[in-house]
Computed example of a mutant assay.
Amino acid sequence: MSDLEDDDVPQLSSHALAALQEFYAEKKQCAYPGGDDKYNVGRIEENWQLSQFWYSPETALRLAKEVTAAAGEGGRVACVSTPSVYQKLRELHREDLAVYLFEYDRRFSIYGEEFIFYDYNNPLDFPVNIAHHSFDIVIADPPYLSEECLRKTSETIKYLTQGKILLCTGAVMEEEATKLLGVKTCKFIPKHTRTLANEFRCYVNYDSQLDHDV
């Protein structure tokens, strides 16, 4: 190429280049809320119409540590309608765990292959790669405090788990939860980022640390 042709190639000014770089940075941040950490759901706000209420950071961390211990090294964890626990698991950088998020809200598809679209109205509608009894523990928080929602979510839980169950739901669902899943109430009381009208509890069917050091 001649010198004349080189002179004809448009050059960006330093200000224009800085603006272009800022544009691409913002575009990346929109694709992965929270910046470089694609597992950060911080900018995905609760959608109350979908009955979404995020756990407090302390509760999310406590539950993430609990399922990590329950799953064991190299374990598999299913987070059913619990995106804030999924986020904490990934913040802990436990690459030895296989973790999947089963969630109705497609905004969480930013998690890629670890996101499984889930509608509790179709409790056993899973991709072919989700096998029967393929998770060491299932942590679930049914989106609605109703017998129907808990019953259908229980079908999902029992299909996915090899045995261990950690359920977070309203205290009013205790009797139904025990009947459907054989779980018992823990001493640990989960908290949310916003004050809820209904009292919440954690329920398990195994010897859990949530009953100790509360």
Rank of each mutant, 00 (worst) to 15 (best):
M1E: 12
L4Y: 12
L12F: 09
S13M: 05
A16G: 02
L17R: 07
A18T: 13
Q21I: 14
E22Q: 06
A25V: 14
K27T: 15
P33A: 10
G34T: 15
G34Y: 14
D36F: 15
R43G: 12
I44M: 04
E46A: 13
E46G: 03
W48K: 00
L50Y: 01
S51C: 04
Q52A: 04
F53G: 01
T59S: 03
L61V: 09
A69C: 05
E73L: 04
G74V: 12
G74D: 14
C79Y: 11
C79G: 09
S84P: 13
V85N: 02
Y86H: 12
Y86K: 00
Q87F: 10
R90S: 06
E91H: 14
L92E: 13
R94M: 08
E95W: 10
D96F: 14
L101N: 00
D105C: 04
F108Q: 03
S109M: 02
Y111T: 11
E113I: 10
E114K: 06
F117A: 09
N121K: 08
N122H: 07
D125W: 11
P127W: 10
V128Q: 10
A131C: 13
A131E: 15
H132P: 00
H132M: 02
H133C: 09
D136F: 15
I139D: 11
P143R: 03
Y144F: 15
C149M: 01
R151A: 14
T153Y: 08
E155W: 03
E155S: 08
T156Q: 05
L160T: 12
Q162V: 03
Q162W: 02
G163P: 00
L166T: 09
G170N: 05
G170W: 08
E174C: 04
E174T: 10
E174R: 00
E175C: 08
L181N: 02
L181C: 06
C186A: 03
K187N: 00
F188P: 07
I189H: 11
I189Y: 05
P190M: 01
H192G: 06
T193I: 15
T195C: 00
L196V: 07
E199R: 11
F200C: 00
R201D: 06
Y203G: 01
N205I: 12
L210E: 06
L210R: 05
L210D: 04
H212K: 01
H212A: 00
H212W: 03
